[in-house]
Design a protein around this nucleic acid. Structure first.
Lengths: 344, 344
DNA sequence: TTGTAAGCGTTATCAC
DNA sequence: GTGATAACGCTTACAA
């Protein structure tokens, strides 16, 4: 029992092997759940492992296996809650696995962005990466991952890639539903604050907006569409633009909640009653959406679930089982007080 | 030039050594910036490295060095923006180093929390961890890190540990300043929505609140203090409690912005004019603070800078230089429209 | 079912 | 200054 000179360092596979009276390979088999193992041997080894408090060294395993246990999250999404929800979803999928999550925010718009991500992938060689919008919409980035040999899954607002490499919410349908909801309440003059050019989400949401109006045979003058860039500030500007119109729109759909908050701000400044004089609908269901006054009707996309599936697509199928994770996710319209039938 | 059977795998240190006509140890010296190296040799090796696109394998380095290049972020902070700001700050400090950030949200309140973190530390053996409040206030956790032999730095609202293991904002002073500001505008009846019991930040902020009133010789009846738990919901309840009082407080200080938003909500519901009838002050300067109406006067603590220093305390001093990172950080009162002199 | 030997890509030791 | 050689802790051949 009394080992001579018990070193205080972490026990290694050798210690376990010695104490259990087996070879390291056998211990390795136990760790890796090899099926061809005498049950007695397994038990004995497990006991020694527990007794010693042995934990396999991930770096050593990574070296021997020529792959590591890191999943990267590459993102440039400005919405903190979204990013955290994604992290939560990924970690949920990674629980009970040996994988860890490493995060890598990148600077969208930086001319060296692709190089930066490339350097990160080359250096760390993560087992796989989850790409968040809007950067996930960048096809060059996906190609880069492929060329480097790094698995990836893109999150997005529409089918961006084949099922193995993407999870998406159907933003177009979701917005269409929201607008149809407004129409059903009697709104006829509905404005849109759209997201920035080059963003797939912005394009999809606009498309859904237009489709809904078209289906209802309601004309859409260009003046009812204001530009935004997903910031509160741009929502303020867009709100001023749209509320200057005569006749005023009775409802405004915003491509995200931040901008909706901006529009609400302007409406209040002008003494408009929301939703009496103006209904407002957002997109994202950020925490703020529920906390502003009146609470914002908005669209919630299942970020965490999507992220979870994304991660499972990456790490799943390692045990040979096919990965049958969904690729498309439904968003839900969250009805709150900011949208109601127009007053008169 | 034409190597026979160029394998498509990543180049290793051996490839570099062979091509440069030196030993692997020399290449290793170049990588690790060893000072005792012939400049010519170094240049030649660097050329080959660049030519080959060689990148050292972090896992192999970790194994050989018996330490890895991972900094963990352990957090249970509910504020997404805060967590992301921390991540940003840490990564800023880690840029240009070989370290990566791995994140580990934990479930505060789970009875197995300490075990969970312990398992994480044992398994991954990160080089160091940054602990976010409120979990960072847990002394048992700090002890656990020490016993496992994992470096740590705690972020907090007050001195929680010695300088090497902590960075803190001075919440007490910050709140004191905010309350003094309200007093200077003529408020005499000021309510407090405090944070949950057991949170150091809540205690510090309350202490600052009380000190300011005491310094001004203003009595503080217990009824002017309402309990909250840092959620919007609890802000609603606390707001109702305080605004039921007669005479009504003319100002309310909230221990965070979420709760301030809740109080604002109630004030609006009751038709109160903010700030005319009621001034509101928050704490945190979340994005929401600037987007609600009226924009919220609040206290901003330099999260990212603190996180940056925390990370530097962890990885600094590796090159022998002493780490001279600050431990205390000043918060700033952000004056917005939600606080003004009382109407009458 | 289990063990032996070799190797994963790097760094430390200690000669030269 | 530089280079053999032996670690580091694990896994994959391939034997037994």
């Amino acid at each position: 029992m009394t080992e001579p000179m018990k070193k205080s360092r972490q026990p290694t596979i050798n210690d376990v092997a010695r104490d259990a009276g087996v070879s390291k390979k056998t211990v390795s088999r136990v760790i890796n759940r090899s099926p061809l193992l005498n049950e007695e041997t397994r038990q004995k080894v497990l006991e020694v492992i527990a007794g010693l408090g042995y934990v396999p060294n991930p770096q050593a395993r990574a070296l021997a296996l020529r792959r590591n246990f890191l999943i990267g999250l590459v993102h440039d999404n400005p919405n903190a809650q979204t990013v955290l929800n994604v992290q939560r979803g990924i970690l949920e999928a990674l629980r009970e696995t040996d994988f860890e999550l490493i995060v890598r925010p990148v600077d969208r718009g930086s001319p060296t962005m692709l190089d930066d991500v490339g350097a990160f992938l080359e250096r760390q060689r993560p087992f796989g990466v989850v790409l968040l919008p809007p950067i996930s919409e960048n096809d060059a980035l996906a190609k880069l991952c492929t060329s480097i040999g790094c698995r990836y899954v893109r999150m997005g607002s529409a089918r961006l890639d084949d099922d193995a490499h993407m999870v998406a919410s159907n933003d177009r349908e979701a917005v269409k539903e929201a607008v149809t909801f407004l129409l059903s309440m009697g709104h006829k003059r509905i404005g849109l604050v759209q997201g920035p050019h080059g963003f797939r989400s912005a394009a999809e949401r606009r498309a859904g907006f237009e489709e809904a109006l078209k289906d209802a045979d309601i004309p859409l003058p260009r003046s009812l569409i204001a530009d935004g860039n997903y910031t509160f500030q741009s929502g303020l500007l867009a709100g001023e633009r749209l509320l200057d119109l005569l006749p005023r729109p009775t409802a405004i759909l915003c491509s995200n909640d931040e901008m909706a908050a901006g529009v609400l701000h302007i409406a209040r400044q002008r003494g408009l009653d929301v939703p009496g004089d103006l209904s407002i609908v957002g997109f994202d269901d950020t925490p703020t959406a529920a906390h502003i006054w009146p609470p914002l009707t908005t669209v919630r996309w299942p970020v965490a679930s999507m992220a979870r599936s994304a991660a499972l697509k990456l790490v799943g199928g390692l045990d040979g089982e096919a990965v049958e994770e969904p690729s498309m996710f439904l968003s839900t319209l969250i009805r709150r007080a900011s949208a109601a039938p127009p007053k008169a």
